[in-house]
Structures are given as structure tokens and as C-alpha cells.
Design a protein around this nucleic acid. Structure first.
Lengths: 198, 198
DNA sequence: CGATTCTTTGAAAACAGTCAATCTGTGTGG
DNA sequence: CCACACAGATTGACTGTTTTCAAAGAATCG
């Protein structure tokens, strides 16, 4: 059960950076959670209490606007994290929903436990920090695309950077993630295919 | 010259967290840089080598698309940082330009020196980490706005979160930052004023 | 001032969104 | 195993928002 998580940590921190006892400590604070497709992990208005490491499946974080339209902020597949950091650190209710778009398995670590692990195990802390740095850089790149590109270029940019995601996520959700309508994405794809053929 | 920077660090880390010697160490690795309005701090294609702490003035980070249109990724005013982290950590040439939109004064710390400071002074490291966390959260919120909102709502969202910026930056740059045209922003503002009057 | 930069305005065009209907594929229960 | 239901994708016609281009109007600064 923890093998995947151990491998992930080893890959991120380097072999031997974390002792067997430290692994046990970390794992003693983890709990396993299974989600069915469409099941919520976090609902708008609730306070996000757990960091979720995705062992299997796929989660989406999204907001719902006044017209009831969903806007997907992020996806989390295997070896990625989910949870609303803003709500977690501030204790305020979340503006986001997080649910499973596939049958999923998560390792949960509560926010206080997460802080404790980080305090006790500096390399874990470093790992988390570098994840945040890269997340920030990715977010900036996404912002660049979304403020600069046409709908088609947004899609091509997405494909270039998220081929794996593109093959397991419904098109309508990709559209939502890109901030365009599902119909527009459908027409864009048609165009691209047509162009490739000629 | 370093007073502003010291105050910033004290505010972020808490009084007494950093000793006089540590401050001196940090400051021994800083250099002052003045930029005139419109002067580059970083040009596309160059490798970003310095973290810049803004003592005075305002920088913008932007990309230029194939049509020559500028797209502003971020602003940095007093007590904020600039530099392309992606280029800095990877050593690859930057896709961004950074220049001064006001007469500015920066404290520069080279990337290696920055790492050294972080290594030697854990509270400095912590400060940087919490900055990244908040930057990431801010970036996510911006993404939400930019994929969900109409042009007007993007502007209102910007105003709500960046009143100070809104009052010192040309409208056309705000438009660029929001991913809308300067003309559209002008019309939106007119609408808002008209509505407020009635 | 005079020059430059920034903003506003109008008209036309492009782009993307909406709505509604149809199509496709998949999986489920009878 | 079939039929049906359902979710997702596509298509067409229309609407609406935003962009583009061009020109004129403020504002700012040396």
C-alpha cells in the first residue's frame, strides 16, 4: 500500500535520504481513502483538512460560478497531490470542490501531521518546497498561455504539456480547464484533423 | 540602503529570528542596481541569474508573442521579488522580458548566493518557502479568474486584489495582464462608471 | 509648449459562446 | 444478448462579446 508512496519520495529526495524509521513515522500518519467516480473529496464551503497523495485514479479541483458552470482549476493523477492549500493554511472554507473523475485511491495526511513531518524530516520539507516551486512555475506558464493564446493555441499548449492527461480525461473537462466551451474545443479538434489530412 | 530589506525580512521572519551577523552575511552578497524607466532587467533569450528584491519602483515580467504583442505575466513593486525562477534553476534562456516601468532600485542576489543564504540561514529559507506557497496560491486564484470570468469580472477581480497596483500602472498594462485588449478595458471602465452614476 | 505616451471612441470583423438537436459509444439491467 | 439509458461529442444556426484598425482626444514630462 505504501510502496508507491515510498518510491515517489525516494525518487524526489534521492535514495537513502530518508531512513526506515522515518518512513514508518510518515506512514503512521497516513490513511488510505478510496473514492468512487464522482465522489467528493472536498466540497465547497468545507475546510480542506487533508493533503491527498494520489495512488491511483484522478481528481479534479474546480469552482462553480453563479450560473452553475464548473471551471476546472487543476487535475491530480498518480503521484500528484490534491487539496486546497489556501483553505488548509488559513482555516477558511474552501471555494473549490474536489472530486474523483475516476475510481481513485488516496493517501491522506492531515495538515498538522504534514507540518509535523516537514518539521521532523528536513528532506521531506525540501521535497515539498521544490514541489511548490515547480507548481508555481507551471502555474505561471499556464497563465501565460491562457492570457496570450487563442483557443486553439491553448489546446495545443495543453497537449504539448499534458499528453498523458489528454488521453484519460473527457474533452469537456479539458475545455473547462482551458477556459473554453466544450463545443469550441470540439470544433478546434475538427479543424486540426482536417488540416493534418491535407 | 539595506534598511528596507532588513525591515522586510524582520516582518516576514519575526523580530530576532536573524542575528546581526546573519544580516551582514546576507547583505555582503547583495548588490544595488538602479534601473531607469523602460530599462531591461532581463531580456528574452538571456539566462536569469539574479533574484531581484524591489526597494523602489516597479518591474514587469512579460512575453512577446509572434505578432509582437506583449503579455504581462507579473508585476513587482516595493517589497516584492522579480526574476525568472524557471530560467534560474534550469539554466535555460528565459522566455520572458523583465523591465522597469518606473525608475527603480533593486537589491540583487545571484542564484548561487541565494541558495547559500538559504542553506546557512534556515529562517530565510522558510521565508522563501512561504513566499512560494503564497505565490502559488495567488497564481491559482488568478487562473480561476482568467478561465472563469468575463472581461469585466476579470477587471473587478483585479481591482479587488490589487488596488495599489491599479493606481500606479497604465491601464494598457492592466489590460495586458488580464489578457484583454486595452480598448476593451477602456470600454469596461466606462460602463462601470456609467452604472455607478445611475 | 511640443513630443510622446496613454486613453478613448467608432465601425467592422473575427472569435468564441449558447442553445438545441443529433450522433456515438459504453455500460447496465432485464 | 439485446435494448435502453446515459454521458460525452459533434453539428448547425444564432447571438454576443471581444478584437482589430484607425483616428482623435487627454495626459504627462522634459
Amino acid at each position: 500500500m505504501f510502496e508507491k508512496f515510498r518510491n515517489y519520495i525516494i525518487e524526489k529526495t534521492g535514495a537513502g535520504s530518508i531512513t526506515a524509521e522515518q518512513f514508518e513515522f510518515i506512514e503512521s500518519l497516513c490513511s488510505l481513502k478510496k473514492l468512487r467516480k464522482r465522489q467528493y473529496f472536498l466540497q465547497e464551503g468545507d475546510v480542506s483538512k487533508y493533503n491527498a497523495f494520489v495512488l491511483k485514479g484522478c481528481l479534479r479541483t474546480y469552482s462553480v460560478d453563479d450560473d452553475g458552470v464548473e471551471h476546472i482549476i487543476s487535475f491530480a493523477v498518480e503521484d500528484w497531490w490534491a487539496g486546497d492549500r489556501e483553505s488548509m493554511t488559513s482555516g477558511n472554507p474552501s471555494r473549490f470542490n474536489i472530486d474523483a473523475i475516476e475510481e481513485s485511491e488516496l493517501l491522506l495526511i492531515s495538515h498538522p501531521d504534514f507540518l509535523e513531518i516537514s518539521k521532523r524530516i528536513p528532506v521531506f520539507q525540501e521535497m515539498i518546497n521544490s514541489i511548490f516551486q515547480r507548481s508555481f512555475i507551471k502555474a505561471q506558464n499556464r497563465i501565460q498561455s491562457v492570457i496570450s493564446d487563442s483557443a486553439e493555441d491553448k489546446y495545443l499548449h495543453f497537449l504539448k504539456n499534458n499528453i498523458a492527461l489528454a488521453n484519460r480525461i473527457p474533452q469537456s473537462m479539458i475545455a473547462s480547464y482551458l477556459g473554453i466551451s466544450a463545443e469550441t474545443l470540439s470544433r478546434i479538434r475538427k479543424q486540426i484533423v482536417k488540416r493534418e489530412q491535407s
